[in-house]
Write a protein that binds this DNA or RNA. Structure first.
Lengths: 329, 329
DNA sequence: TTATTCTATGTAACCGGTTTCACTATTCGC
DNA sequence: GCGAATAGTGAAACCGGTTACATAGAATAA
């Protein structure tokens, strides 16, 4: 069955399309009697305005384009949930494209959004600032997520350095002085920032502390391997900070397998606060992806309404202290 | 900066808009020299076709509208990931709306998609078939997720009954005869199906078994409470099937708190296979939300291309046997 | 050579809305 | 009771694409 158009409604109600449009959009200068006739016709025909036509003629779609990489697990859904909540609160919709790896795909995704979205939210963890800039159309506003540099565009990031620094402060306060950091992939911005933040804060608060950094890949097994190597080398650390929870959990398990007590002999902390961390009592930094998404959307809608310019927000994660660094009372 | 339009390109290349359009869309009847001039103009102006205009004139958007409830945790992201992968493989985009609770919101979300999408994928766990039918426009195809009845439309569901039956079979094979089922919310279709599938299969395979069913709400605490009640009542069950993993984990913890061995004294199984389940050794049914999403998209694209009609697919979850029902070797 | 096909291109209508502008019929001020 | 302001309405242009149709010129057939 063909969808009724505004002209069908106009014919049915014996008015012009202009009157129908005015009625639909709640303009004031419509006679109540006319309005009623139009609304009756709308109901009778089951008329629903065509969003593409409206976008075209108004040059406005009330839609936000979202381009994100293939995030794993909770993060993705929390980010989207946060965006969606903020967007629907202000009457916006979300056009979603996930971007698997390469930039060419991102370019294509963004091109396909031209005309359908009023603004863009782009998360490109690995892209270089200048690549990213070439990607984004100059014609519509964009907000970036988790980027080092936005080239004049608002950027919202998780403050990995501050988060890692909080762990360093926690370790320092506990009096730990021989510390192991299991890093994430070197290519990853987050991983580098977490290392840097941790290292700097530790040096500041406990200059005498010894810090060993070993590579990892965000997988549980990397945490295990790091602990095994540590034990084999005879290096007796008293605290471990892994760049994410999965590695921290691996490390914790391996320590216990080797009859070391956590937190008695070694304290362990991670980053992210995945659900498992709460269940297994891992101290970690809680990252609020939903807030990140919501704030990005709010910033973009502000931009779309002409108010607000560049912004640079770093969302600081919360330190969640659990049994892995604190003796049970 | 204003986006270049097709007329700008036509002027720049000294041709008509028709030639530009033909070049862009790869029609054959364009002179190579003209094509080159057009492509040069496109590059010079940074022209990107306006998707809204194209949708309008072709009555085709290459976009799929997705309306899903606010799913918790992994499910949402896996579902979307599955859809996105399948969609982008066939050149489609995803316009997402999450629907918090009420139908009015769903109606609004669907109305806003009119003209923007070629088809719909709708998941409405609580809506009645007739309500749902009234919601969906007759003008575009739709595929339903997790619905009892599609009223002629394709339906893709997780086969909760078969999944629950698999647990029943597992328990029966283990020789368990005094069994507790912790249900999900009564209002929930999934919860009712899981109970039904479990009950029926158990009756079939072990008619002598005694089954107690207690209410729950999918929260961890409900699992704990159910075990406490069970212990207080003196009912000595030897197997517990909770309608989801969180309740199963709560039950498992409470059993161990009360010095009961899992799986020695009581075996425990859940449903969903959340990441925690793997970590804590909980036997459960693995639900493949990504496959559900991907298959729904593939079905819809088939529908959009005119091939394929009604379909009813039940995706059977996999039984994953872990330490909570099986003695370690 | 002339009639006929074919290729390449342009003109203009159309998709379904919004909105400017012109116009008529009121209502208001005096 | 008359001119001015105002409310209500419709015709038509426009948004940026696609495409049916017309047409001119070149290639082919007779």
């Amino acid at each position: 069955m063909r969808q009724a158009t505004i002209r069908d409604v106009a014919r049915e109600a014996n008015v012009s399309v202009a009157s129908v449009s005015r009625t639909i959009n709640g303009h004031s200068n419509v006679n109540p009697a006319t309005r009623e006739r139009v609304l009756a016709a709308v109901r009778a025909l089951g008329y629903v305005p065509n969003a593409a036509a409206r976008s075209l003629s108004m040059a406005l779609s009330h839609t936000i384009g979202v381009v994100v990489p293939d995030l794993h697990g909770e993060f993705f859904s929390e980010l989207i949930r946060g965006m969606d909540t903020a967007a629907s609160a202000t009457g916006y919709h979300l056009l979603l494209s996930t971007m698997h790896a390469d930039l060419e795909e991102a370019r294509h995704a963004i091109a396909a959004m031209n005309g359908r979205v009023d603004g863009l939210i782009v998360m490109a963890t690995q892209a270089q600032p200048e690549e990213l800039d070439a990607l984004l159309p100059a014609s519509i506003p964009a907000v970036l997520l988790n980027c080092a540099d936005g080239g004049g565009r608002p950027v919202f990031t998780i403050d990995d350095r501050a988060g890692a620094a909080a762990i360093a402060a926690h370790f320092a306060a506990l009096g730990k002085r021989n510390i192991l950091h299991i890093m994430g992939p070197e290519s990853n911005n987050d991983a580098r920032d977490r290392r840097k933040g941790f290292e700097e804060e530790l040096k500041r608060l406990a200059p005498s502390a010894k810090l060993t950094v070993v590579p990892g890949n965000y997988q549980e097994e990397a945490g295990r391997a790091a602990v095994r190597d540590m034990l084999n080398s005879g290096n007796k650390v008293d605290a471990i900070f892994a760049a994410n929870d999965m590695m921290a959990l691996g490390a914790m398990q391996e320590l216990r397998t080797n009859a070391l007590d956590v937190p008695g002999d070694v304290v362990v902390a991670g980053f992210d606060d995945i659900p498992l961390a709460g269940f297994l009592g891992l101290t970690t930094m809680r990252v609020h992806m939903d807030q990140l998404g919501a704030q990005a959307v709010e910033c973009l809608t502000r931009l779309l309404e002409g108010k607000g310019g560049e912004e640079r927000v770093r969302l600081v994660p919360d330190l969640v202290i659990r049994a892995s660094t604190e003796k049970p009372q």
